[in-house]
Design a protein around this nucleic acid. Structure first.
Length: 271
DNA sequence: AAAAGCCCCTGGATGC
DNA sequence: TGCATCCAGGGGCTTT
């Protein structure tokens, strides 16, 4: 579910409010893809310093150590003074002096991991291979083009892989390629510098617009206040198989790349 | 080294 | 109504 925009929207919705909070208690539900790694008691008495984001991970900085949170495919966070009793899909909860932080994740592909710092082996395993941050200064055009040149795989799959640029998931990969006029099946290595620049701009543009509209709520995404996003309403191709392209009216085509659906316009994205 | 497949898991939609 | 099948916003791990 959550790609970079949804994770960032989530972060923005509670980071300021939880900063400075003291952890009173914590509990875990069913196992997630990765679980804490330390007893929950380890969190008690710690203070939350702030919340950062790296790719699709949230990094909750504590006065000692940090928590890596991942929302997987179906995760969402809530943060409020008070929350209803925990349901069957609430698998992590942290009571703090400023409110309760809770992770709801039906499919349990998400993760809550404690790391001593960013050099902790578990942090290196999860974050070490990640590519450039698309909305930050370090997303340099030349590095992007160089990274793509090393990859013969389809550009859509290279975007999804996250080792050249992070945060671009299945929705925004199709959307960015549409904006850039690039066919998703084209080998990444075959992108000229001008086209790589165009794609870089499209990735930034689509992700920023998605953050600004509260992310995409396809099914059940909501920020930490429980509010949904609206980006899905302006999707050009994602989820629109057979419907007319908003630019040229040609029916949008859906194909499969590595078990994932890809949507594109055969006319607006000629190659 | 890179690429392709395989899973992890639950729930909703669709079809018989 | 019941049951089977397919699909879903991710990504680390194993195998080629």
């Amino acid at each position: 579910m959550p790609e970079l925009p949804e994770v960032e929207v989530t972060r923005l919705s509670f980071a300021d409010r939880i900063a400075g909070a003291d952890i009173v208690s914590a509990r875990l539900g069913k196992p997630l893809r990765w679980s804490l790694g330390v007893p929950v008691q380890h969190l008690m008495g710690r203070r939350v310093l702030g919340v950062r984001r790296r790719g699709k991970y949230l990094l909750v900085d504590l006065d000692e150590g940090l928590l890596l949170l991942h929302l997987g495919m179906s995760g969402s966070l809530s943060f409020a003074k008070q929350l209803p009793p925990a349901g069957v899909h609430d698998h992590f909860e942290m009571v703090t002096s400023r409110g309760v932080l809770r992770l709801n994740d039906p499919r349990r592909f998400g993760a809550v991991v404690f790391a001593q710092d960013e050099h902790d082996p578990v942090a290196v395993k999860l974050l070490g291979h990640l590519g450039m941050e698309p909305l930050s200064e370090d997303f340099e055009a030349s590095r992007f083009h160089e990274g793509l040149k090393l990859r013969k795989a389809a550009i859509k799959q290279v975007l999804l892989a996250g080792d050249v640029v992070v945060g671009v998931g299945n929705i925004y990969a199709s959307e960015a390629l549409f904006l850039a006029g690039i066919r998703p099946t084209l080998s990444a290595a075959r992108l000229s510098r001008p086209r790589a620049d165009r794609l870089r701009a499209a990735v930034r543009d689509v992700l920023q617009r998605a953050v600004d509209t509260g992310g995409s709520t396809l099914k059940d995404f909501s920020n930490a206040h429980g509010e949904g996003g609206y980006f899905q309403l302006q999707a050009n191709v994602y989820g629109r198989a057979g419907e007319p392209c908003r630019v040229c009216t040609t029916p949008v085509r859906m194909i499969r790349q590595g078990q994932r659906a890809t949507f594109y316009c055969t006319v607006c994205q000629p190659r």
